[in-house]
Computed example of a mutant assay.
Amino acid sequence: RFTDILHEKGYAYISYLQPACKDWNEDLKAQHGITPIPAKPHPKLEACKELCGEIRYLCSHIKSVKNPHEMLMEHYEKAVPLMQSSRSTDRQKAVLMEQLLSMAVYALFAVMAQYRQLEKPMNFKQLTDELCHSYHPHQDRGKLKTKAEDIQQDVNAINAQLKTSGIRTLEDKQKLIASYMSFALNCVKAQIFICLEEQEQKIEALQKQNEERVDYMQAVCEEFMQPGI
């Protein structure tokens, strides 16, 4: 976050230090012989890496796509009602995850097609690495509805650029590539939200079960402690 701010201020060369443990306070504890809380990977970053790995795997195992934009739009039309649903079942969420994954894959195929036209060598590992590195957790806010709106904006931008008449300039192609990459990233963000939301729901359900069990055990103990029992 601070790096982005400094870049905006014109600072090109920026470096920063990170604590070895959870934070600097924990580093100080470690220096004084107190057991520190270890650092943990950011859950959103971990999810992003995993999803980009899945995208890379699919891209590398699909031989070719004749019209990636058409395929992208086909999956997008199926995903729209699922993203707009306020209460989705587990099955609907699973289907949406599949649609979002496919949309990201076809977006990268569309990017690859543009790079071929520019005669610029590029492979899917490079594209998925770029996709993963472009993800910043502090910029990833909002619920699924927000993600759907961002994806819609990307679709509108892509379609507007594709419908523009005339020969596309280098700048036009670069803008189109950027729009497809933004689309793919927003698909990944939506997947991250769904994944982490499911994890939170499972944790909450487990906590509720534990609380109910504790309440039950306390009730049993109180019953046995009553006089005459």
Rank of each mutant, 00 (worst) to 15 (best):
E130R: 08
M103K: 06
F193E: 05
Y57I: 14
L206Q: 09
H69D: 06
L127R: 09
E54K: 07
V111I: 05
Y11Q: 09
A110M: 07
E222V: 00
A47D: 10
N156F: 14
A190R: 00
G33W: 06
F224H: 12
A107M: 08
S165Q: 12
G53D: 13
K143Y: 09
D90W: 00
I203Y: 10
P36E: 13
C187D: 04
D172Y: 03
D4S: 14
E98R: 09
H32I: 00
E119G: 01
A110P: 13
L176F: 09
Y180K: 09
H7G: 00
K202A: 08
R56I: 01
I151V: 04
V220K: 12
E74W: 05
L118C: 06
Q152T: 02
E8W: 03
S102G: 00
L196Q: 06
I55H: 08
R91C: 04
Y11M: 15
S86E: 08
G166T: 02
M103P: 03
L72P: 00
N67H: 15
L118T: 04
I192E: 01
V214Q: 14
Q209V: 01
C21R: 06
A184T: 06
A113R: 15
A178M: 09
E149C: 04
M73F: 10
E46H: 03
M73C: 07
K208M: 14
R56G: 03
A157G: 00
E46T: 11
E46Y: 08
L6G: 03
L162S: 01
V220R: 12
D129L: 09
D154A: 11
E211G: 02
L170P: 05
S182V: 04
Q114G: 06
R168S: 08
A219C: 04
T169W: 03
I55K: 09
L28T: 11
M71Y: 05
A79M: 07
R213V: 05
H136S: 10
H42E: 04
A12Q: 09
Q218C: 07
G10T: 11
